[in-house]
Write a protein that binds this DNA or RNA. Structure first.
Lengths: 257, 257
DNA sequence: TGGGTCCACATGTACCAACAAGTTGAGCGA
DNA sequence: TCGCTCAACTTGTTGGTACATGTGGACCCA
């Protein structure tokens, strides 16, 4: 005999029923009161069980409406396409991808001077606390917050490329702008991490409980040294990152069919 | 006036104090009773606030002990090193990395025949429900569960490579074994996703509440077609995935110093 | 018919009470 | 001194109550 706590039994039973399709994606669960009757438990106990499933990202709750099984819709991000290395200007690949998927992109943008944090400084190989330019982008798909992107450029680059610090978009893209000034990026170092969002991130991305964020840090290098560091924060439940390594002609031929 | 709920105020206040260092990593928080006095709230209300921070991965709780600020220790995974493409045999890169970090690796292993799930079948380009070989690996670092790895091989490969279906390790590594039989992998397609763990995953990886998992799916291709699909599940709080794209000689020279 | 009110029902917040169960250290006894 | 018991303190579980707040449909009235 296991003698699990009652709220665990409630959570397990509901998870099973969601897994086996009794409650499909988008379906509404019985109300707390009904579940309390069914499981012969108090409303508080049922709430504990439901809260568990909410914090595991399986269901959502809305006041006045009830509990719903979460729908999962995944957006694919291709991080290693050759085109991205060639023309990875801000927002362009994003706009194209989103439009191709039949969705409507939209973004806000701002530029500011910042003091470089420890994490960024290490990647840019500059001193922590030194000045850097931060170009910040908040992206939406069909008016749903999708990602935030913060790109840092080191101070020394500003003498060569003053437009980086000017507010407003750089029409031809920052990478092409830099390349035109002789600062050509030849390689990237990508890092991918995941964790639960901070309240600030949860607000910007409108993430409910139980949804992690995916952090994508891309440091761009010239032949000599790092020239920029981009930290992109995605909703973890809506995105998948893709990399291709080596020769994948077999795969890409099949996909082209 | 905002009029936030009281349990939110508790969570926010504690988060601020954790962020500003009042409670550093590993520090013990005041007990529920003390916090209840401080915030002039009931124990239940304080518990709601603490529970929020737990499910956000900021703190942990243990019965009889109290609440602790979570420590974060990150392990780096290099997914795109050239050596990995050449000799990516099961466990070898892992053992080497872990030993180099001064930690003690340890793993359990099992082989079984499985029916191919929809997700795997699509990647292996075989029919869903068909037979495949599953080689499963459960890895530990210093006896702490670290990752689970499930590699699927398609049925048609077994005629060429019967040892895949035999229980027990393949000493020279599966990739080298396959290469010796003329099945040489020339490229990988990697996918990275994140979500909250299922109860099963939480059990295997001993993950507490508030910690997401990172899912790394690697499909290996010969020049003709996919020959294997590996799904690795990591604790999201302890791992970071790294990729290098293009020419990073500048970076690697610096790191070699 | 159009529009607004209001009620029924959903979850959200907050409190109280009691007991279960894990941890630690003080203190006692051999 | 060693080892055991036990008390005190911790969080975990479960029940209860009351009221706040958001949602949607029934209903009534102009």
């Amino acid at each position: 005999m296991s003698k699990q706590p009652k709220y665990q039994q409630v959570a397990d039973a509901l998870r099973r029923e969601i897994d086996n399709g009794t409650y499909g994606p988008g379906a509404r669960l019985p109300s707390e009161a009904e579940l309390a009757t069914r499981f012969e438990a108090s409303r508080n106990t049922v709430r504990s069980g439901l809260n568990l499933l909410v914090s595991q990202g399986l269901i959502t709750s809305s006041q006045g409406l009830g509990y719903e099984v979460r729908k999962h819709e995944v957006f694919e991000l291709n991080a290693s396409r050759f085109e991205n290395l060639q023309f990875p200007q801000n927002g362009d690949a994003y706009s194209t991808d989103v439009t191709n998927a039949g969705r409507r992109p939209h973004q806000t943008f701002r530029v500011e001077l910042a003091t470089t944090s420890e994490q960024i400084a290490q990647r840019l190989e500059v001193e922590a606390g030194s000045r850097s330019v931060l170009r910040f982008c908040h992206r939406f798909v069909d008016d749903v917050p999708w990602s935030t992107q913060a790109t840092h450029y080191p101070d020394w680059l500003l003498q060569k490329a003053p437009r980086l610090a000017e507010p407003g978009d750089i029409a031809e893209g920052t990478t092409r702008y830099l390349a035109g000034l002789g600062v050509e990026q030849v390689g990237y170092a990508d890092e991918i991490a995941t964790r639960m969002p901070t309240p600030e991130e949860a607000r910007l991305l409108e993430i409910g409980p139980g949804v992690p964020v995916m952090l994508w840090t891309r440091t761009g290098y010239t032949a000599d040294r790092p020239v920029r560091c981009t930290v992109t924060t995605f909703r973890g439940d809506l995105n998948r990152m893709n990399y291709e390594i080596g020769d994948l002609s077999a795969r890409n031929e099949n996909e082209a069919q």
